[in-house]
Design a protein around this nucleic acid. Structure first.
Lengths: 217, 217
DNA sequence: GTACACAAGATTGTGAGCAATCCGTTTCCG
DNA sequence: CGGAAACGGATTGCTCACAATCTTGTGTAC
């Protein structure tokens, strides 16, 4: 099941949605996608079923698939779920990270600090993503990793940078530093708390400003 | 997409796995399932794809589907994830539950207490499931609810009753009471903590005894 | 006796076609 | 002129058939 070709189509279609090439609420016509991806309609179909199960697209009988629109309220929910799961991952990383992994995480954090000094907010943003990814990798917690990936996917349309909110950058760096120090210090409680604190701030930014500035931090 | 018939087949197939009629690691041959469910092979196929995405079955190219076996370590992971998500739901319920819902939750708890007095552990177990369901419903947190459902599904093979562990029943009741009181008292922190405390005990039972007594509490 | 090669059977993956359903438009009737 | 019914194009859901792949069993060489 799920031949390489089918898997590839699934990943590419998902990427089209993540990258915004297929907009929210856009109708996804199987035949069109088949032509675009250069695969048969059957393969597109199973890819859509999988994406539907992921919650990335909405499937309606006889009316096909649409890219799911995430309301502000849903975005808050998703972010909350992501926060508790990433906090769990941070805790797990605190227990399981190797010295090498911790060194890598520290290095990423240092890079982020440099980016801020340089005023390179986009670069900082990339460092942010890398840091979270490194922590999740160090956690070796498959279940949490899988769920977080799915949740991120749904928030993709909100990928406007909170980092652009005035003053957010330095706060963000401080929060990340606290997370890293807790992990390096093998303090589970602190690591979990720091991660929740961090993502809580992102949520607050969303709840407060009803503008679309979530997904990152 | 997903016609009623296809949806039905998906649910029935899932139920066959949950209820243990299809054992872990058992090979799922499309043609056989089609005959058993009295639907076409194509419908079985999409149902399997969906279950694969849920993590309930494992799909291997050209080798078909198997019911996924969850190792003890994975069970712990799943339970941990479930714990933080149910804690989030408890917190949400604390904020959003109506007076009517709280009354209903209290009623379920009272019923559980009665079952214990009667020595009806199976009945207690059902009450337990109902209580958790009621809290999740009151939380009105779609995202958490969806993820928890998926996680429960994967733990289904571990559905042996922790409640059968000597002395667990009264502890369990006390833990549930704490959760309910926190929700009724509108104390978010306490509700979240109580739920994590409760599910933490279930995890401890698993980690300690390597026997299969998780999934409930 | 063991191991490898090969053939036969079983099962999955995919493509083409058709029926069912939905949506937008036109037509008919009041 | 307004509304309901019917028509037509478009799209999905499903069946069927076949190719691709894996598995099992058999035969042969060493």
């Amino acid at each position: 099941m799920t031949s390489p070709a089918a898997d590839d189509a699934y990943l590419r279609l998902r990427h089209l949605i993540y990258s915004g090439k297929l907009m929210p609420n856009e109708r996804l016509v199987e035949a069109d996608l088949a032509q675009r991806l250069e695969v048969s309609r059957a393969i597109v179909r199973t890819a859509l079923v999988r994406l539907g199960q992921d919650g990335v697209v909405i499937l309606t009988p006889h009316r096909g698939a649409r890219v799911r629109v995430v309301t502000d309220a849903e975005a808050v929910e998703i972010l909350q779920a992501r926060a508790v799961l990433e906090a769990l991952a941070a805790r797990s990383a605190t227990r399981r990270a190797t010295a090498r992994e911790i060194a890598g995480i520290r290095k990423i954090l240092a890079g982020m600090s440099r980016k801020i000094d340089e005023g390179d907010l986009l670069g900082y943003s990339e460092g942010n993503a890398a840091l979270h990814a490194a922590i999740i990798a160090a956690a070796r917690h498959e279940t949490a990793a899988r769920l977080i990936t799915g949740l991120r996917a749904q928030l993709v349309r909100f990928q406007f940078r909170t980092i652009l909110v005035p003053g957010r950058a330095s706060h963000s760096l401080a929060e990340h530093t606290a997370i890293v120090e807790a992990i390096a210090g093998r303090d589970e409680e602190a690591a979990e708390k720091a991660m929740r604190h961090h993502l809580g701030h992102v949520e607050a930014a969303l709840s407060h400003t009803n503008r679309r500035i979530i997904g990152e931090s």
